[in-house]
Design a protein around this nucleic acid. Structure first.
Length: 592
RNA sequence: GCCGAGAUAGCUCAAUGGUAGAGCAAUGGUUUUGUAAACCAUAGGCUGGAGGUUCAAAUCCUCUUCUCGGCUCCA
């Protein structure tokens, strides 16, 4: 997560406390390393961090030592006094520190007259503040240093990597404890942990990193999601296609992707005279399909969709569970339409996304929000140069968002190279935000591929392309859903929907037959006729988070009634078999 | 890729230079169970991999693979 996405703490006292703690931390570090270089040290959500250039690597053992020293300082009622310094003075003071020197020069270039410092004891630090007046205002029990990390100076990987120390800080000890409790809860929901516990996916060192293997249970969820996508997209006028997972490298040179994505593409394979690559995206394949014959305006909008595997050689340190993988599968589509149809099509896509989110019980604003990702007219390297087209495209997306009346925020420089996009940003359980779905307006590819349609007047016209994913990348969406549901999937997604526990040996066969009957009726049922107590079988089924648990013994065999225990309930209910099958099927059909 | 921390049985973890253990899971037996853990036994390991130091290495060192926390990047 980059700095720009970290929300500042609510202004006011807490911000002052956090900021002042970061100064105390720097004071403690300076005692150990007098010539330490000081990078940036902002207040962030729940705490603060500070970057240091140190002569040696730090061991995490240092954190409690620093904390201890900081607590001592808090007890000394150290004051924070602001004063101004001239640029000459400031530069002199930081002669040994290239980072502060650079910051001071930037301030000068920005037209400042002099610079603000905060002084506490011997520690005089370039800083705009604000700070508490005295450490008296800081609760020594309400902060902690949490982690060491590397971070590039000014966020660029071309620069030196500094050592970043993160801290948490609140007004009261109780708030700190609540936060830690929340983090521990979040950890329990981590999709990597649940994926293992619920037997949904695994990794194998010899298969390779970033390449998850879905187990039979995980595959049930995946296939249900695919069914949902196919069904919903078909309803909404998409046509599904199948195109190859590799292509000649020429295709990506033609599309212009090649120079932008070279580093994240798998290296080229040379076979006979052909140079092939695993595809990092599907777009050009779909454009070639479009171009396979002349198109009429009557065919537009042409919505080509594909559940498409894509391959990207992500840097190893960026891989993470199912959230970031090297082969992923996108619910992809390219809508080729006339310019005047674009707005309606974008609206339809946003509606599909909303509909999908509704199915998953995700709340707009809370679980996800819209980001309008814009280009940067000054950056011709990252973005295709055509200012007028960018202005127009961004205008259309902005207008669409305004029209449907959803709150959104704008982010400069986050667009694709070929056009602006609307990203649906999903909030993960640990507070991090990831792009889940995206709608992109593309005015570049139609030119590159010379895409045309014959308009009413018999003349050729150039369409535009809307790139979109409906439920995004299946791997990442599955990770979101595992965490969102904490592994207790709704009935339609549950790998096992009904677990049937036999009371004794005499009921085993009956249970197996019952499970088979459920399966014939479209319900994923499993019988547990193992030689265990009923209590233990229930315990296991609860652990698997199965939505329905049935216990079958003499009573059920005699009465034709089923005893059902619903997930999360401690009590049971009785229901007729046919009625139960109907109930479960209704939930499956309505995706509940 | 970069900075830092890790990797012990299928899983969760012990063992701080001196014979690798436990619980759960698995397997075999006893038991025939009525809503969150029956009992007994067995098996399970080149301590991620390769080198090195040492009389002796899970433990110390080097390299390597993978994982985790960040940075950068991103669906």
């Amino acid at each position: 997560m980059s700095d720009k996405n970290e929300k500042p703490a609510s202004a006011g006292k807490l911000e002052k406390i956090r900021h002042s703690l970061s100064h105390l931390m720097s004071m403690a570090i300076s005692e150990l390393y007098p010539r330490v270089g000081l990078g940036v040290g902002p207040v962030i959500e729940n705490g603060f961090y500070q970057d240091y250039d140190l002569p040696e690597a730090l061991n995490p053992d240092i954190l409690p030592k620093l904390e201890k020293r900081m607590r001592e300082m808090i007890g000394e009622n150290i004051e924070f006094k602001q004063h101004q310094m001239s640029f000459a003075q400031a530069l002199k003071q930081y002669k040994h520190d290239p980072y502060k020197t650079e910051l001071i020069k930037d301030l000068k270039a920005a037209g400042e007259k002099n610079v603000s410092f905060y002084k506490s004891e011997n520690f005089d630090n370039l800083c705009a503040g604000p700070h508490v007046e005295s450490t008296k205002e800081i609760n020594p029990e309400a902060f902690m240093l949490t982690k060491l990390a590397g971070a590039y100076w000014r966020g660029s990987e071309k620069n030196k990597m500094l050592t970043r120390i993160y801290g948490l800080a609140f007004a009261t000890k109780q708030e700190l404890e609540n936060h830690l409790k929340m983090m521990a809860e979040a950890e329990k929901r981590d999709h990597r942990k649940l994926g293992k516990e619920l037997d949904l996916f695994v990794f194998s060192e010899i298969v390779g990193k970033g390449l998850p293997l879905l187990t039979p249970k995980g595959t049930v969820i995946r296939k249900e999601l695919e069914k949902f996508v196919l069904e919903e997209e078909t309803k909404r006028g998409y046509q599904h296609v199948v195109t190859p997972n590799l292509a000649r490298v020429e295709l990506y040179k033609k599309s212009g992707h090649y120079p932008y994505y070279k580093d994240t593409m798998y290296p080229m394979m040379k076979v006979d005279e052909e140079e092939l690559i695993l595809r990092p995206m599907t777009c050009p394949h779909h454009f070639e399909l479009y171009n396979s014959r002349p198109r009429s305006y009557k065919e537009l909008p042409l919505r080509l969709a594909e559940i498409a595997h894509q391959y990207r050689y992500e840097k190893s340190g960026e891989l993470s569970g199912l959230t970031r993988v090297r082969m992923f599968c996108l619910a992809d589509a390219h809508i080729i339409c006339a310019k005047e149809q674009a707005e309606d099509e974008i609206k339809n896509v946003l509606d599909l996304i909303d509909y999908s989110y509704n199915i998953f019980g995700l709340a707009k604003g809370k679980d996800y929000r819209y980001r309008l990702s814009l280009g940067d007219r000054g950056d011709n390297k990252k973005f295709y140069k055509d200012d007028a087209a960018w202005d127009k495209a961004e205008g259309i997306l902005r207008k669409t968002l305004e029209k449907i009346g959803v709150p959104y925020f704008e982010a400069k420089g986050e667009a694709a190279f070929y056009g602006p996009k609307i990203d649906v940003q999903m909030k993960k359980i640990n507070g991090q935000e990831e792009t889940a779905f995206t709608v992109q307006y593309d005015f570049v590819m139609p030119k590159r591929f010379a895409m045309k349609y014959i308009d009413r007047d018999g003349k050729e016209n150039e369409p535009i392309v809307i790139h979109r994913s409906s439920i995004g990348c299946f791997e990442r969406t599955m990770a979101f859903l595992i965490e969102h549901y904490a592994g207790a999937f709704p009935v339609w997604l549950s790998p096992t929907q009904v677990k049937i526990a036999s009371v004794g040996q005499a009921h085993g066969e009956f249970c197996q037959k019952l499970a088979a009957e459920f399966r014939e009726n479209g319900v994923r049922a499993e019988a547990d006729d193992s030689d265990e107590t009923v209590g233990n079988k229930i315990r296991k089924a609860v652990g698997e988070k199965v939505p329905y648990m049935l216990v079958v013994g003499d009573r059920e065999m005699a009465s034709l009634k089923l005893t059902v225990r619903d997930r999360g309930e401690k009590t049971t209910r009785e229901i007729g078999k046919q009625e139960f099958i109907k109930e479960v099927n209704k939930k499956i059909k309505n995706r509940m």
